[in-house]
Structure formats: C-alpha cells, structure tokens
C-alpha cells in the first residue's frame, strides 16, 4: 500500500452547470477502485457540491449527492471544505452532507504538501 501515491482532488466548480464535478467524481471512484489513498477538497463554488437536498431529476441529471454518498463504499472518507468559501456563500458546515472537515488556508497548503498528486477540477 505504501507505494501508492496519495491523491488530492480539489473541486472548485459548482455542480451540474459544467461537467467538472462529475469528471472529478469519476476520477475519485476510479482511484478508489485501485485502492489509492484519496482526499477531496471542496473550495470556491465547489462547496455547492456538498449542499444537502439535491433533486436533479428535472434538469435531466443524476443526483451528485447520491453519488458522493457512495464515497465511503469506495473507502474514500477524507473530505475537506474551505472555510472562507463557505463564508463567501453564507453557508454553514451543518448545511452540508458527507461530513467534511472545515479547513483554513494554512490547512489547505498542508493538504497540498502532504499529497503526491494534486488534481484540480
């Protein structure tokens, strides 16, 4: 296991409007299949991916919430959300699903340092 690269995926785009969130999840689940250690950071408009109560059927898309809820089944449980991005949007962490850890800019720098590969979506 120790030879496997640690991957940090940074999600900065809102769900549904573009494919970034979906693409990111595909990469995360695929890395999960290979048992690579994965962390997900949600920042900027990406924090909306974590908001509870998605009902995407009427816009012809799958619920991202339902897919993100499967992350623990892929042993992906390291989820982080940027504190200042929550503040920007007037959101509180208790409005979010999936129990992310709230992190500040210093903690984000440390996340980047402590992973071998950083992918941004």
């Amino acid at each position: 296991m120790s030879d496997k690269k640690k991957v940090l995926i940074i999600n900065r785009r809102a769900p549904y409007g573009r494919s970034n969130a979906r693409d990111s999840l595909d990469v995360a689940l695929t890395c999960g299949v290979f048992e690579m250690p994965i962390s997900l950071l949600f920042a900027d408009d990406g924090v909306f991916q974590l908001l509870g109560g998605h009902q995407a059927k009427d816009i012809g898309q799958k619920n991202l919430s339902a897919n993100l809820a499967a992350l623990p089944m892929y042993d992906i449980d390291q989820l982080f959300v940027c504190e200042s991005s929550l503040n920007t949007h007037g959101l509180a962490s208790d409005q979010l699903d999936h129990n992310p850890t709230v992190v500040d800019h210093n903690a984000i720098q440390q996340l980047i340092q402590s992973h071998d590969v950083v992918l941004t979506f």
Partner: peptide, 15 residues
C-alpha cells in the same frame, strides 16, 4: 437505488 450508480467490484463486495 441509494447511490444512483451500479457499483464497481470493491464497493459491491463491501455492500
């Protein structure tokens, strides 16, 4: 029904 996708092998085994 719950996760809106068919599982890969690993989560399938877990489920």
């Amino acid at each position: 029904q719950t996760f809106e996708h068919a599982p890969a092998m690993r989560p399938f085994v877990k489920a």
